[in-house]
Design a protein around this nucleic acid. Structure first.
Lengths: 280, 280
DNA sequence: CCAGATCCATGCCTCGACGGTATCAATGTG
DNA sequence: CACATTGATACCGTCGAGGCATGGATCTGG
């Protein structure tokens, strides 16, 4: 991957895109106009696509340029937030990013923790369906409330609850009139799984179901939040409830994470046995 | 703001952070070790804070370095996704980003649009409570389903529905035993508003309410999704329902946005009068 | 139709940043 | 205490960013 996007050139590009005029954009950037022309041309070559359709009398964005202009806002937002948080860390401010699988709500543990540790800034990280554990591994989140199955290796996990799963089918489906199903009823049906069909959102998954592409087993809480008139949710009497876990990276025994685990353990008051060795 | 973060230096930093060893990190980067030492030092000066605590025998991350390492993942994720989408645009692929106020679900219009325009990639942009319209103005989203109130100027809006608001109060509140309230009952109560108290998440707002910091008026759909045992939701009989709108930037009459508005207009089949002039 | 204005592009120059090689200084090891 | 390891420093060459002058294309007024 050529991740070497030059943020300075991106800033130049944004100026030209907003002014649609090289001379005035150069003025706001405090550089000379010829420099800007060359930088933009170099930027286009680096990206491999033209960004402006320009004559001597007009400067207009190409589709690629339009797209880049939109993306530039996301990039600058993330970068400025990152720099701000780095400086906060430099000043000693602590932060804890708690990831949540979709449909799970902020738990009791996080509220107790926030009350006990007001000096720690707490952020939530909404997880996507297909990236249950990745943000925990690469450092984007420190602790996570995940729904099984996910990849255990390298994580310490604590079970925190169970969710019953219900079958989601279109109203036109032959089984839709039943009051309850068994797993035997689902034999031969196409089950939409994270592995079989990578849907980017839950709504997209429901859309596939409504279109007759298959069925899905979804946690009850999710089914309740996203009710649609063209879908029905039916309990599956013999389905195993899916386990929800609190997970942290194995190597992370640092302050806030450690404290959070302590709070979680005392909050749960149930058989909260860590699945791995709990070192000091 | 000094947004001029050098992504090349960031890449160097990540390599050192992962290897905790300048020589080996330099090998993987295909540069000489002295270069890496100088780049890291320059990077620290640009950021204004030390990133590594290093002796001749060990290299460890400072708190600021640890934070930057976490943020680096977010930055690279956003940048690579942005570059990918720019190239998709270059190849002619179209994209439509639909923003949603929290609690609103993907509407009928988006499903119909996706079915009619399978060539357009559709993304959703979950809006925060305090940034109802900003992503629409700066290009991060193309159309948005917003909940009033928001800043109208510069946007074309189409009313798409109404939501009744319910009062959310802690169970310990004197009014909590009532079956319904009127707005007169709420006189003198502290109402938690986006303007009065900038809560970063809905859960945080509910947490404030549970802590006795005040009450809030929340849309019914939101109240249903986030039920808590320490809060009660009561209808307010004379409260005006809050209007939900479909909004697009005034200057955007381009292809996918235009098509989406057409689909929305035909889908709604109600008095979908645009609030502004609908140019060609 | 032409002179002038406007505006982006090109050529040439200077300077600073990046990368390489050689070497020093500090620390751990047998 | 000799030696290896490792990060830091010094010095040098190259490349790219920025400035200035100018060219070429297009629109406008007379």
């Amino acid at each position: 991957m050529d991740l070497d996007l030059d943020l300075r050139k991106l800033r130049y590009f944004v100026a030209v895109a907003e002014h649609r005029h090289f001379g005035r954009a150069a003025q706001t950037l405090f550089i000379a106009q010829p420099v800007l022309s060359r930088q933009i041309r170099a930027f286009e070559q680096e990206l491999g696509c033209r960004l402006f359709e320009r004559t001597t009398r007009s400067v207009e964005l190409t589709p690629a340029g339009q797209r880049l202009y939109e993306e530039a806002r996301s990039i600058t937002t993330v970068v400025t937030a990152a720099l701000r948080r780095v400086h906060e860390a430099e000043r000693g401010e602590q932060r804890l990013v708690v990831a949540f699988s979709p449909g799970l709500h902020v738990s009791e543990a996080i509220r107790v923790y926030a009350a006990e540790h007001p000096e720690v800034e707490i952020d939530v990280f909404p997880l996507r369906w297909w990236e249950q554990d990745a943000p925990l591994r690469d450092g984007r989140a420190h602790v996570g409330f995940l729904r099984r199955p996910f990849e255990d290796s390298g994580l310490r996990t604590v079970p925190v609850g169970h969710e019953t799963k219900v079958a989601c089918l279109p109203v036109s489906h032959p089984l839709a009139g039943r009051h309850a199903l068994t797993s035997a009823d689902l034999d031969g049906e196409e089950i939409l799984d994270v592995r079989t069909r990578r849907t980017s959102s839950l709504d997209e998954k429901f859309e596939l179901i409504a279109a007759g592409q298959g069925l899905a087993l979804v946690p009850l809480s999710v089914a309740g939040s996203y009710s649609r008139s063209d879908l029905v949710h039916l309990p599956v009497t013999d389905a195993l409830p899916v386990e929800t876990c609190l997970a942290v990276p194995e190597n992370a025994c640092a302050g806030p994470v450690r404290d959070f685990l302590d709070v979680a353990a005392s909050t749960l008051r149930r058989d909260a046995r860590p699945s791995g060795p709990v070192g000091a």
